[in-house]
Amino acid sequence: MGTVVRVRGIVLPEREERTFWIDGDRLRTSPVPGAETVVDGGWLLPGLVDAHTHPGSAKPGDPFDHDLLRADLGLHRDAGVLLVRTPGTAGRMPRWVDEEPDLPRVRSAGRWLATPGRFFAGWGRNVDEADLVAAAVEEASASSGWCKVIGDWAAGEPAVPVGVLSAVVEAVHAVGGRVAVHCQTADGCRNAVEAGVDSLEHGMNLDVGLVERMAAQGTALVPTLGAFLDFVGPTSSDFLRQGVEGMLATIPVAREAGVEVLAGTDSRPCGTVVGEVQALIRAGLTAEAAVGAASWRARAWLGVPGLVDGGPADLVAYDRDPTAEPGVLAFPRRVVLRGKVVR
């Protein structure tokens, strides 16, 4: 047994004061005499989550860079983001990511899967629609179980047919994987929902009439709203401006219907999920729902326990309640990753 440390604080979302002893990379509730106290008071959150981030590539078209990947994950960690989902990268996630004790836990989706004309030229893995099912199974099997399909691209151009996406979902689910789909057009969103995908990435121009079905079948929405709000401006196209306006209106309706709305940045620099929390609040989510979208709700959706006995020792401590003052998320007092104090 290594050195055991102790943390105490008000745990969110339960709002109960609890004490944990950290043994290795696990939280324990059984007292250990003589443990060093590293957090005593304040508010404790399960490690923050960025559910849509692409560490390792500086801009579209750039190759996958392992040194940049390490630096990007370090930025996430220092901001208290201790679990990330990477729905698509320019290359497959290296094995060393899962072995690095000082880097966030990663759930990856292999390379982007794009059919002709539906992605940045030369980026990701380009396949014909006829080969998409087999490629999706390969990428899901070579990653953390996720695959990512570019379901549509430019406005006015056809989306991947619902029959093709349905076959992808069936095949990937059969091997225990999950399917994320990039969609920004109304047809792309509709096809993805009707195919039963696990997550809509962006969901711009999503028909609000589909949210009940999304909730019933467990399709999450990862809008990456902040990235669009930063990008849209007076000279933006009608498609973009109307799409962002639609997102602002649809997000709270989707959450109210029971859709899991999650925080993802899809932008650089890494480690800025607090900005997405603020964007979700701007869209009409309560502060607690928005913070949960970047912490305990996202972790549960990814199958990772929160602050419970036997759960991973990944937590962030704050001086004030982040659900009352979301801005405090940018100022963690203490960050503990895999049982190690990293800040």
Rank of each mutant, 00 (worst) to 15 (best):
M1D: 09
M1Y: 05
V4F: 00
V4M: 03
V5G: 00
L12K: 08
R15K: 06
R15E: 15
E17M: 14
I22F: 00
D25R: 14
D25N: 12
L27K: 05
L27E: 09
R28L: 07
T29H: 02
S30M: 02
E36W: 01
T37V: 15
V38N: 02
D40F: 03
G41K: 02
L44D: 04
L45N: 08
P46E: 15
H52V: 12
P55Y: 11
S57C: 07
P60F: 00
D62H: 02
D72H: 13
L75M: 15
D78K: 13
A79Q: 05
G80A: 03
V84I: 10
T86C: 08
T89S: 15
G91L: 00
W96L: 03
E100C: 02
E100D: 13
L103Q: 06
P104N: 08
S108N: 14
R111C: 15
W112D: 10
L113Y: 00
A114Q: 11
T115W: 00
W123D: 13
N126F: 07
D128F: 06
A134N: 03
A135C: 08
V137C: 00
S141N: 11
A142N: 07
S144D: 03
W146N: 02
V149H: 12
V149P: 05
W153G: 07
V160C: 13
S166P: 02
E170V: 11
E170N: 13
V172T: 06
A174M: 01
A174Q: 04
V181F: 13
V181E: 03
H182S: 12
C183Y: 08
Q184K: 13
Q184Y: 11
Q184R: 11
G188Q: 10
A192I: 11
V197P: 01
D198H: 05
S199D: 06
H202A: 07
H202R: 12
M204L: 14
L206H: 03
G209H: 12
E212P: 04
A215C: 06
A215H: 11
G218Y: 10
G218P: 14
T219W: 09
G226H: 09
A227F: 01
F231D: 12
P234T: 08
G243D: 05
V253G: 12
E256R: 13
E260M: 14
G264E: 09
T265I: 03
D266S: 09
R268S: 04
E276R: 04
V277Q: 14
I281K: 04
T286M: 11
V291I: 09
R299P: 03
L302P: 07
G303E: 05
P305E: 00
G306Q: 02
V308P: 01
G310N: 05
G311K: 00
D314T: 07
A317Q: 02
Y318H: 11
P322I: 04
A324P: 10
F331A: 06
V335G: 08
V336R: 06
G339A: 06
V342R: 05
V342G: 05
V342T: 14
